[in-house]
């Protein structure tokens, strides 16, 4: 396909159909717009996947025990939690958070200079898990018996919905890409069909001199595929610039590409060319059948 598109000896063939007409601008503009959207939505999809993966990986092997106890039993319960954590299969590390770490956790709400000494804050334990983690029900029962103020939190309550949301966003982005491809294909097919109708007279001459449908189709396929690739390259570059200029920060809205993701803007024009090739071919054969 690519070899045929780049074959310079086809310039004589290319000249048979005049390149002017609204279909040229329509194809280039719609390809550019679709490529821009594809790059942007691809960035959203990849960002969402990345977030889902990060959250799954970062929090999947972590859990927290929160301990609120009267001052007279606090140390006993702290010791009990540390002992239980050390003895529980699936838990490979347990550490009590320092006051500074707790202050840092509360900084978004109280600021960094807040005096927390007066507040009765729970004691937090950071657990590191392995494999499938501990038997949660067993661990909760033992904590209830030996450290009644301790609550085990595996973050699932808020982590899973967010991971699910990120996954869903990634799926929606995938569906959007399919829709963009379908709309792009429809636009190119429409433009190719209009171009074939507008050049009905030339097609008549070509048929008169013995041209087969495959030859006539090739002229239009080549033209529309190259136009689509040209428009898509422009749209991809514009989309990439916008994505690069988006604010980063590593949060959920960090749309910037990472690693192999940078290939995506380069793949969009190629995919556009492939879609255009198939759409024009289909439209051309269909229109030529009607014109015969």
């Amino acid at each position: 396909m690519i070899g045929g598109l780049l074959d310079r000896s086809d310039s004589r063939v290319e000249r048979i159909v005049p390149p002017s007409g609204f279909t040229a601008s329509l194809t280039v503009l719609s390809a550019a717009a679709m490529a821009f959207l594809a790059v942007f939505i691809g960035a959203i999809s990849m960002s969402a996947s990345r977030v889902a993966d990060d959250w799954g990986a970062a929090l999947g092997d972590k859990a927290t025990i929160r301990l609120s106890a009267p001052a007279e039993t606090l140390q006993d319960q702290i010791d009990a939690v540390m002992t239980i954590a050390a003895q529980t299969p699936g838990v490979v590390g347990a550490r009590q958070l320092t006051e500074d770490e707790q202050r840092a956790l509360l900084a978004p709400w109280f600021g960094t200079d807040a005096a927390l000494e007066g507040l009765r804050l729970p004691v937090l334990f950071d657990l590191t898990l392995e494999g499938d983690g501990p038997d949660i029900e067993g661990l909760r029962r033992r904590l209830q018996g030996e450290a009644p103020g301790a609550v085990y939190d595996d973050h699932a309550r808020w982590r899973l919905p967010m991971v699910r949301a990120a996954d869903r966003m990634s799926s929606v982005a995938g569906v959007s890409l399919v829709l963009i491809a379908a709309i792009g294909a429809a636009m190119v097919a429409l433009a190719a069909s209009a171009s074939l109708s507008a050049n009905r007279q030339i097609i008549g001459v070509l048929r008169l001199v013995g041209a087969k449908d495959v030859f006539i189709t090739r002229i239009f396929v080549r033209r529309f595929t190259l136009r689509t690739i040209g428009g898509a390259v422009t749209g991809s570059i514009a989309g990439m610039i916008v994505v690069v200029l988006m604010p980063g920060g590593g949060g959920f809205i960090d749309l910037r590409f990472a690693g192999a993701g940078w290939l995506w803007p380069a793949l969009v024009p190629l995919a556009g060319g492939g879609i255009s090739y198939m759409a024009t071919r289909y439209a051309a054969f269909r229109r030529l059948k009607e014109l015969s």
Partner: peptide
């Protein structure tokens, strides 16, 4: 029945061009 934007020689060669 010519292709008007092509030259005379290109029109004369059209059967060859169109049939490979």
């Amino acid at each position: 029945r010519f292709v008007d934007h092509l030259s005379v020689s290109e029109n004369v060669l059209l059967p060859a061009t169109a049939t490979g």
